[in-house]
Simulated assay, not measured.
Amino acid sequence: MTTELAGGWTQFDYEITSAARAVFKEATAEIIGVTYTPSAFATQVVAGTNYCFLCTAQVAHPVVSPYPALVSIFKPLSGKAHVSEITRIKPQ
């Protein structure tokens, strides 16, 4: 993973670290109806840490196909991580 600079985003890392996985699990634990499986993540150091996870989303419905999504999470310096945005990725 690239060295973190305050305010700058790292490159996507395709090996999810145990620390990043813990943040993802904490922030998405209460999401119902869609399962997000992360395959890569990037971070941005601010007053805490912003995470951007590249995920495969699967709706809990047999007819809906999986789709790619970005899950943005903020982990404050103290306190619980929370989802700040989920964006479905569509072809351009």
Rank of each mutant, 00 (worst) to 15 (best):
L70E: 08
T37H: 08
V71K: 00
G48K: 05
F24H: 09
Q58N: 09
V71M: 01
T49G: 11
A29W: 08
F74L: 01
A60M: 10
Q58A: 06
G79K: 13
V59K: 09
A29T: 10
C55V: 10
L77G: 11
N50T: 07
P76F: 04
F53K: 11
P38A: 05
V23T: 13
Y67R: 04
V59C: 02
E26N: 06
V71A: 00
S84E: 12
S78E: 14
I86N: 01
V59M: 02
G48E: 03
V71H: 01
A42M: 15
I86G: 00
G48Y: 02
Y51E: 01
Q44R: 15
V45K: 15
G79H: 14
L54K: 13
P68A: 09
A40Y: 04
S78M: 12
L54N: 09
A40G: 07
I32N: 12
A60R: 12
A81K: 02
A27F: 06
T43C: 06
V63H: 07
L70K: 13
T49A: 14
S39L: 12
L70F: 15
I73C: 02
A57M: 13
G48L: 04
F74S: 00
A40W: 04
V34G: 07
A40M: 05
S72K: 09
G48W: 01
Q44C: 10
C52F: 00
G48T: 04
N50K: 09
V83R: 09
V46K: 14
G48C: 03
V71R: 00
F53H: 11
Y51G: 02
C52L: 11
P38N: 06
L70Q: 12
F74C: 00
T28R: 05
V46E: 14
V83Y: 05
S84C: 09
I73N: 00
T43A: 06
P62G: 06
P76M: 01
L77E: 12
E30D: 15
L54E: 09
A81T: 01
V64H: 04
P38V: 11
T49C: 12
I32V: 14
I73D: 00
F53A: 11
F41Q: 01
P38W: 06
A42I: 08
E30R: 14
